[in-house]
């Protein structure tokens, strides 16, 4: 619940003494709450620590651990290596995006359930085209198989409330 999250952010800021030198620990803890660093929250942190937002943004984009984009609970990564590309990975990409209403600009669904990304070669060319969903690897994927994976996840989510 968003109100709770805001309270937690205030707590974090207080625990770190609203000390601008503690910016990195603050960002680490805030990211744990939101899963990423929303711009408005960064501005709030900047105001609270008396730092310019550009400075906070600069720090947040310097360290690899921080992300300013929310990712879905299920991250689909489609291999964009040569073998997968030749084997039609772009068709699968399009099928996934169509199914979830995503595009190159918007890679995560608004309910933060799914993210679809491409990655450079996963090194499993024999299984091309290859897709990973979180930690699981799927080989020889077709557009139909890929969208079935989504259906399964949706069904599981519904079953588990």
């Amino acid at each position: 619940m968003a109100v709770k999250k805001f309270e937690d952010v205030c707590d974090i800021l207080d625990r770190q003494g609203r000390n601008p030198a503690r910016l990195i620990p603050v960002l680490q803890e805030v990211q744990k709450i939101y899963g990423y660093l929303p711009e408005e929250v960064l501005t709030f942190i900047a105001t609270s620590l008396d730092l310019p937002p550009a400075r906070v943004y600069g720090v947040a984009t310097f360290y690899a651990h921080f992300t300013l984009e929310p990712k879905g609970r299920y991250v689909f990564r489609l291999c964009d290596g040569t073998a997968c590309h030749v084997k039609g990975s772009s068709d699968i990409l399009n099928a996934l995006r169509d199914k979830l209403g995503l595009s190159e600009e918007q890679d995560t669904t608004s309910d933060k359930m799914f993210t679809v990304e491409t990655v450079s070669c996963l090194g499993a060319c024999g299984l091309a085209p290859v897709m990973t969903v979180n930690e699981s690897v799927y080989g020889q994927v077709t557009p139909e198989k890929a969208t079935e994976v989504i259906d399964e996840i949706v069904k599981n989510e519904e079953d588990n409330g």
Binding site: A21, I24, P25, Q28, V59, F62, Y63, A64, H65
Partner: peptide, 26 residues
Amino acid sequence: IMEGAGAFVCGEETALMASIEGKRGM
């Protein structure tokens, strides 16, 4: 204790100190 945030360059001492000060690790 200060946890890094994912930047190899912070192994360099001046960058590491910048990081402890809440800055970009340059």
